[in-house]
Design a protein around this nucleic acid. Structure first.
Lengths: 299, 299
DNA sequence: ATGAAATAATGAGTACAGCTCATTAAAAAA
DNA sequence: TTTTTTAATGAGCTGTACTCATTATTTCAT
């Protein structure tokens, strides 16, 4: 029992706008006969007249007026839906759902998002940090479209590329004894308080690449949510933290903190962007990766 | 360039609801093939995939999810529109636009509207009292659907029927000298203040049927908007008025007023309901006239 | 008045969109 | 494995929604 179709809405609207069926037919690229037949059929099936036929003009009945109001509401919805789908088609619209497995990268991400959002105004943004089955799982499950991670896992169907090299360093306050050291060794941290982000130890480089290999544990580990708080604590000598060198340098203008190398050769890190291989041709996603690549070369 | 049709919205919705295309096809009384072809064509024309095809299941793409959301908004609008048109068809819905050319009839109208609105809940009401080309003109111009008037004008295409006989009487306060008179003659009003509704004299029976034939004018005519105010003025002896007898009797419980016959035989009036002949078969309109007829017989 | 132009309704015929049926390909379940 | 379930595809048919031609009215111009 579904009688009403888009065409009927288009017709009643065009007749109202153009005054006559003939003019409406022209506007819709149909013949007057087509409109007449179409609406006649609708009227027959609904068993209600939509127009008073008075000589050669058409005045909407109450039912017709009602349908016209409905059409004026619904047709624009059709049009908008088609426009939006067109945007999807041209890769102009979408939600870029980004997953982050690397806490301090958030600062870096923000530097990219600002110019990105300017060039892609109809792309929505969504950043997630918690995943039930890890970042890779979230990519596969279409929970996210792009993963920012220091641990690429080259599986079939995924594409990873490095976008960012950096050194993970120890941050200390300006009164701290390590302050001028060329580098420190794990044992030297045995009596320190260590501030970290609230993630498990196997995702913290200071453990996996420094403390654990050195067989050392710190006096105490304290968890803080934000980089700012972390650096404030470090600045006033309440403990130490491990962060990317570039981040420390940036914040050293704001807080009196210093970077110290971890081990004689330092802890070298890379950040990767991961996407599903099938999404490699999605314009707005590609544009993001392009921007990320360029930014790293000319920060 | 109009690709999107109701069917596409129905399909994407049914697939979402029923999980598979096959099940959706059953629900829509179509074959799986039909849905597949239909959506394939839409995808081709829009140049955007609506589902990720993963093995034998369909997961909406971002575009698909968007279309689904649109469908969930729009399909109910189609359904509601059809329902409403059905109500129009069955005469259950409409706006009964009533025109009144008879001021005191408003009280009478209210007695009918209350039971009417109970039996016809989806009929809207609209009462007008001002018409650019008179009540008859308003009927012809579809400004109103029903005219309440004391002056039927039997023109082709219109149907009038009397619903109400009454006597127009003079109302006076309980201290007034006419109070106990059997009737009065025009000359007796020459020194009175007359309260009337704010309409032209040729629509006031006290003039057309009493004063003007008697060649008399009153000392002063004062206009008031409402029956209540009018009767309050009369009650405290500030003047007299002309109203239907039934109305005076009703209000005499509230105010100390009395009815006096105009002339030896009284001024006898009839109220008519007028409709367009073509509307005589409109259920909700007929129901109103039926109610009006019955009410007059058993008030 | 009278003819010309404009308009909606109607009928007949047709093209093609959209459907069904049959089959294939692939994946999930048994 | 085999069987079942599912979506895609192709071929062919059907019905509908369109066009064209015509009629009946009405409106406009002269």
């Amino acid at each position: 029992m579904t009688f009403l179709e888009r065409i009927h809405l288009e017709i009643i609207r065009a007749v109202d706008r153009h005054g006559t069926m003939t003019a409406a037919a022209d506007a819709l690229h149909l013949t007057q006969s087509a409109l007449s037949h179409s609406m006649r059929k609708l009227e027959d099936r609904l068993e209600v007249k939509l127009w008073h036929r008075e000589g050669r003009n058409l005045r909407p009945t109450q039912a017709g007026a009602h349908l016209l109001a409905t059409a004026n509401r619904m047709i624009p919805q059709f049009v908008r839906a088609e426009e939006r789908l067109g945007q999807f088609a041209r890769g102009e619209r979408g939600t870029l759902r980004i997953g982050m497995e690397c806490h301090p990268c958030y600062q870096w991400l923000q530097k990219i998002t600002i110019p990105y959002l300017k060039t892609w105004p109809s792309v929505d943004f969504d950043v997630k940090q918690e995943f039930q089955f890890g970042g890779i799982g979230a990519l596969f499950a279409y929970e996210i479209d792009l993963l920012v991670t220091p641990d690429p896992l080259h599986k079939k169907g995924l594409h990873f590329e490095p976008v960012f090299d950096y050194e993970q360093v120890l941050v200390v306050g300006s009164d701290h004894p390590f302050r001028k050291a060329h580098h420190i060794i794990p044992r030297q941290l045995g009596d320190e308080v260590l501030f970290t982000y609230p993630v498990s130890q196997d995702r913290l480089d200071i453990y996996t690449r420094f403390l654990t290999p050195g067989g050392v544990t710190v006096r105490r580990q304290k968890v803080v949510e934000t980089t700012d708080i972390m650096l404030q604590m470090v600045a006033c000598g309440r403990g130490v933290a491990a962060l990317p060198r570039w981040l420390v340098e940036e914040f050293s203008e704001k807080y009196p903190v210093h970077a110290v190398r971890l081990g004689p050769k330092g802890v070298q890190k890379q950040i990767f962007l991961g996407v599903r291989q099938t999404d490699l041709e999605v314009d707005y996603l590609n544009a993001f990766m392009e921007l990320a690549r360029n930014y790293c070369e000319h920060p």
